[in-house]
């Protein structure tokens, strides 16, 4: 079949087939589990070494103090990283470089919002109840 006829046949069959584009957000976008999406440090694992902050190319990470009622003997400096998702470029250098693999990763990508988000609340949630105070 000549390529032009083949093209024409394809076009006609496309009229009756499902659209190739995804109707986001009415339908969830198909994102693979490998996708580099939202990530935040697990405070039970983080040792406060600041390596992730040093390597972040977007300066998206700030080290902040742990809450006063939480101490972690593994984290003598008492600091942990907070990721500003508005600045983050999702290169995952922080995830890669962390010596204790503290980052929890996900394939969540839809973070656009009217307010800016950071990882602080998510990280604080990782504190186990028994570890408090």
């Amino acid at each position: 079949m000549s390529p032009k006829l083949k093209l024409l046949r394809e076009v006609i069959s496309n009229i009756f087939s499902r659209p190739a584009t995804i109707q986001y957000p009415r339908e969830p976008a198909a994102v693979s589990s490998e996708y580099r999406g939202l990530h935040y440090p697990d405070l039970n694992k983080c040792i406060g070494c600041s390596l992730c902050m040093v390597d972040c190319p977007a300066n998206a990470i700030k080290m902040v103090k742990l809450p006063p009622d939480y101490t972690n003997p593994k984290n003598p400096r008492g600091i942990y990283p907070v990721v500003d998702y508005g600045k983050c470029v999702f290169c995952y250098q922080c995830v890669f470089v962390c010596p204790v693999k503290a980052y929890i990763t996900s394939n969540k990508f839809d973070m656009a919002d009217y307010v800016t988000h950071n990882s602080q609340a998510l990280s604080l949630k990782t504190i186990r109840k028994g570890d408090k105070g």
Partner: peptide
Amino acid sequence: EIITGQRVHAD
């Protein structure tokens, strides 16, 4: 995307 984690920026 399945190899590197993103469809555009391989990193």
